[in-house]
Amino acid sequence: MSNREEKVLQISGVNPRKCMKCGKCSASCPSYDEMDIKPHQFVSYVLNGRTKALAESKSVEKCLACFACVERCPRNVEPAKIIDAARQLNVRQRYGDTLSANDIPSLIDEDTPQQLLVSAFRKYKR
């Protein structure tokens, strides 16, 4: 297992070997159609050494952190933690941010709650 795979497992704290490939995560995911790599594939991407592709996928920004997959996984695998760890591989790098303060004025309206900005910065920026 390469450094990158180990890093994802270490950040996420997930044991991908527990997965029995039932797909309940993908059946539950509200963002399934937006994702190029689907929740049930997160585990095999890490196990098969394709973490780089996972980190570069659209899925890292499409996960809503709604925890439906975590709640319903019959094996306690917690796919949301894997995709978040892949996201962190990006944002922890220099130039890994995908949101900057300059973008904000064009993205908000008069009702935008502070909570949305805070959450988005946590997810998209180092």
């Binding site: 937006e34 809503l64 709604c66 949305l116 946590r122 998209y124």
Partner: peptide, 19 residues
């Protein structure tokens, strides 16, 4: 108990609209 779109609304309002 299904997601409203959460923080994704900032960059992808269309996702939040769907959800």
């Amino acid at each position: 108990n299904e997601c409203c779109g959460g923080h994704v609304a900032l960059k992808s309002p269309e996702s939040a609209q769907k959800l």
